[in-house]
Design a protein around this nucleic acid. Structure first.
Lengths: 235, 235
DNA sequence: CGCCCTGTGTTCGCTTAGGCACAGACGGGC
DNA sequence: GCCCGTCTGTGCCTAAGCGAACACAGGGCG
């Protein structure tokens, strides 16, 4: 999983003809860290299939602060609303990891959907996975301790990058996890003390991935499992 | 909203022909309090369109306890996975309010879906709403205080019943909300002291609905709003 | 070189809620 | 009327996390 991603997995798993058609309609774009691809309520203009960038899906809480409820990388897509007939974004989408992405305009994506049963099937199954992961996230956010959630976040992010180094400050992590920076500092210090990672001014290096998995809550594995079960090529 | 519900709203909003076809394929069933319609991982056998019963969707947390992440009444349906091509339940479904429901077998529902663009459209839009509500629930569960969440739960339940009286004990509420019974007792005592409701051994009477709305977190209104925006007949 | 900005570490008091134990209170069955 | 099970209220302690404030460290840049 920790290779340099060369393609979006959802697209890669399409049958040849559908894939070719879809790719022909896609542009290559670069996602820059901090880009806001859309804000809640915006009209969706493009559907994204990240390759080696990744995107946080955030929901505002009480107007002000925001909280991450999903992460989209090479394994997913952004803009599923379009496939459900709703062109309005339900969440804010913020680029967390710079990198490449495929992108397709909404009308083209719609016509690809009509043309390709395989694409419809894939998109539908991905939506199912998203719903399962959202439920999981709800439980995780409310019941699991910060250390475990931090470990989970790092693992999910690690899965979506090609390196063991993540560039992210405690402050930003705190926003993602919906806690104070101090809380992150404490939790991160704990993980570092257990020799699972090392960090230095916004530079986090994962040392012991297996250890992190053990320290994270079951939600990490559960999320991966459901994805594989529903979306693996053979399913 | 507090009338005796005579029909499922999703079905009622279908155009005549689609509605008629769908209803012809549906059975009427009675949901009894405590029925488990399906457990996570089960094969889905029927899709439900409640009329005046309602159903909790629960996700297990760490194997043991469970936590409510959704509520389905006359305004919704249970079993959307089928429309996404996945016949496996993602959540536990538990009858919280006894009452009538329409029900349709999976193969029939699939063929209705193929036959009726209006049904597809409605189902897709409902799925979009569910995703938005799940995100909301995630934020709500992790950031809002128990009083507000309790108020929200009561309001949501009230919307789905035809009476001002709910039969539910603190113990059961605690399971839904994912907290201890004592916490519910305290929060409920607070709401009662503010003259928003009255309760007596498992019998909760809502006195001041507007007051409850004020006491609840914004998630209640947000959930209603997104439903109306996406699913109202005119949209 | 010294300054400032960013990122990190620490402290203090406070609130929410969990764990546990137990005390009252109501109501149905006998 | 009495018993007993269910439902509700209370008290005590602990843990996680918030808010605010402050201290320190490194690095870029004047």
């Amino acid at each position: 999983m920790n290779r340099a991603h060369q393609a979006n997995r959802l697209i890669a798993d399409l049958p040849h003809a559908s894939r070719k058609r879809l790719l022909a309609s896609c542009d290559n774009v670069d996602l820059a860290f901090g880009d806001v691809l859309c804000a809640r309520g915006d009209r969706i203009r493009h559907v994204y299939f990240p390759v080696d960038g990744f995107i946080s899906k955030l929901t505002p809480v009480d107007g002000r602060m925001s909280l991450e409820v999903g992460l989209v990388g090479y394994e997913g897509m952004l803009g599923v609303g379009v496939a459900l007939g709703v062109n309005t974004a339900a969440l804010d989408a913020l680029v967390q990891g710079a990198g490449r992405s495929l992108r397709i305009g909404v009308p083209k994506f719609r016509s690809e959907l009509s043309a390709s049963p395989a694409l419809r099937r894939m998109t539908h199954r991905y939506i199912y996975v998203l719903m399962a992961q959202l439920s999981q996230a709800a439980a995780c956010l409310s019941r699991h301790l910060l250390d475990a959630r931090l470990a989970r976040w790092l693992l999910m992010t690690h899965d979506r990058t090609s390196s063991n180094e993540l560039r992210i400050t405690h402050e930003l992590l705190a926003q993602m996890l919906g806690v104070r920076r101090v809380g992150v500092t404490k939790a991160a210090g704990l993980l570092q003390a257990r020799k699972l990672l090392r960090y230095n001014r916004g530079d986090i290096t994962i040392i012991d991935r297996a250890g992190l998995e053990a320290a994270s809550c079951g939600c990490y594995r559960a999320g991966r499992d459901i994805y594989e079960r529903i979306l693996s090529k053979e399913a």
